[in-house]
Nucleic acid binder design. Structure first.
Lengths: 218, 218
DNA sequence: GCAAAAGTGTTACCCTTACACCCATGA
DNA sequence: TCATGGGTGTAAGGGTAACACTTTTGC
């Protein structure tokens, strides 16, 4: 019988509305192996609790970020990369709006990297990032991930730019707005942007329960 | 540091063209706990190898089935259900055509159950079955799972019946065939059904590479 | 008034849906 | 010849895609 250590890695995908860029949160490893290298936040499971709980603890400890959702991606096996042990690594991911993360939560060793300018990562971390991005692209039309990338109140053009950035396409603005108007879960507020140096846009908010109703499986 | 045993469970979803029914493959447990109960085929990881390899070995050992694809569903944590150990269970699933499984592969202790008449299952097995069915429904339009439920050569009406059975709806036959005709990866053969007691239907086959091209992520 | 982004309608085309009858085969 | 499932076309309506200009604001 084999007993394994269980590691958890956190793939935190962020999006900056200001920069219109997808980001990934990395930490500078404090322990061997690969001490000093940029890597996914991660750690070993040390208590019997739900993996998701552990994942959130690890993320908070390593980056200071808390109160975000985490979903399981899948389990990976790492054989023989540390001692002769078999290690299981369960990857969790989160999809968040970078600007929502308070700056006092940003710890010394964590840093956002542009998704297209990721440094060389140790172990199978690059795979996990790729798998998460693929997962996001595949589920973006059936799960409300995109709205997690935006502030609670957002403009339609901000939403459009996320689509365009994620899939590297450009969308007709009139058609996009027409479609958005049909979606009951995108609710127009009676409120305008503030502190803008141009014509302020109307703000909208996402209604999760209406979304659920629209996308429930039969 | 916690060390865990790693279990693997196999959710094998089958479909019988003859019966037009979805099935699940269960085994009668040979070991405690829950000896004698119907359960998912499963076992512990005993060597360092890819989980998928282990899953296939387990399935072969417990049911005799081999040479089928298995995809990872996700990892589950089972805390305190056996001794005081933490057990990790990684669920794998397979989607197959029941009639493709040779009868000499059917072992003494495995049996197909109608998906709507599943006996009470131990541990979290019921959850795993539900999660697999949900996964299947959600990915059926973007992954070629449906074709794995059919023989290599199938008729359009067989394909239609799978849709209808899976989602419990009825589809207009003319519209279904029209749509199927547009899909380049469903290729009509110059061949008819044999041994039928009615008008024989044309056979079709699935072209995986054309499918990939149609569904690749941007 | 100018720069910069917000916001708006119409048309053509395509895809979806609804609907009913003839065909080929074995018994 | 009959029973059974296989196979076909058309028209209406809804949704998608292509297209350019006006509006509002800060400076």
């Amino acid at each position: 019988m084999i007993y394994s250590k269980i590691a958890i890695d956190c793939v935190v995908i962020g999006y900056s509305v200001q920069e219109n860029r997808f980001k990934i949160l990395l930490i500078q490893r404090n322990n061997e192996p690969q001490k000093g290298a940029w890597a996914l936040p991660g750690g070993f499971v040390k208590q019997t609790e739900e993996f998701e709980t552990t994942a959130k603890h690890i993320l908070k400890k390593e980056t200071g970020i808390r109160n975000i959702f985490m979903d399981q991606l899948k389990a990976y096996s790492l054989t023989g990369c540390e001692d002769a042990d078999r290690i299981i690594s369960i990857a969790f991911f989160s999809i968040i709006n970078m600007e929502k993360v308070k700056s006092d939560e940003a710890e010394q060793y964590s840093k956002w990297f542009d998704l297209h300018k990721i440094p060389k990562l140790p172990f199978d971390h690059k795979n996990k990032v790729k798998d998460t991005v693929d997962y996001l692209k595949m589920h973006v039309n059936t799960q409300p991930y995109l709205f997690k990338l935006l502030p609670a109140k957002f403009t339609l053009n901000q939403l459009q730019r996320i689509y365009e950035c994620l899939f590297n396409v450009s969308i007709d603005n009139r058609n996009f707005r027409k479609k958005a108007k049909q979606m009951a879960y995108i609710e127009k507020l009676d409120e305008l942007e503030v502190n803008t140096s141009r014509r302020p846009a109307y703000l909208y908010k996402f209604n999760p329960s209406k979304y659920k109703q629209a996308f429930k499986l039969f």
